[in-house]
Amino acid sequence: MNLPGPILQPMIECAALTRTYDLGAERVHALRDVTFTVNRGEFVAIMGPSGSGKSTLLNLLGALDRPTSGDLVVDGQSVARMSGDDLARLRNREIGFVFQQFNLLPRMSALENVMLPLTYSPLRGLDRPAIARARLEEIGLGARIHHRPNQLSGGQQQRVAIARALANSPNIILADEPTGALDTHMTAEIMALFSRLHQKGLTVVVITHEPEVAAYAERLLTFRDGELVKDVCQAPIAVNGA
């Protein structure tokens, strides 16, 4: 467990977080009374078998869904009471999504894909191509900014997707099985990238069912049947700083 201290600042606070779905007569508790806090700069892995509620949690953390009861506070803002536009703003400014299938738009170049979150930014006067180019350079794809997704390898596509997640300088990276579509070598490369982002101070939450991926995190939350069953700190795999 994290010890309370002056530098610990809560980034994600779940308080009795519950999400149920009404499927006709049946009521499914996808998430039941979940309480935990992720502090700024933590690298957390969320594990659990399918049906454990980790996808439901991801949707809630990503402000794509609202809890049935309980509260979720992201960077001091309560998600449960937010309007649709405020949720959109939160997704745009605070959260960077990374998906298993990369989810790049095939008709756009790497640069245009990275610019996408910037087009939805409420900030005016951004030099969007320059920001997107800088993000791609930071993750080592500066030479491929005009390539389309189908001209890039899986690992490269996921790096473009990570550059896109970083476009608006969010505080949180939310990754859903980010290495599920990659081979072992690429997995190591991508996870090392997450570790470096974490070292730079970003809060990283990775959902995975692979222990070798979870091993990069410094804290491991385990879910089963919609409940948080285990919350342990661990020594992460050492990654050389960038």
């Binding site: 794509l64 959109a88 703003r89 997704r91 989810n103 996408l116 979150p117 939805y120 930014s121």
Partner: peptide, 12 residues
């Protein structure tokens, strides 16, 4: 869906 996840509002 992706655009919404990246911060697009309904009106966008």
């Amino acid at each position: 869906g992706l655009r919404i996840a990246l911060g697009a509002r309904k009106r966008d």
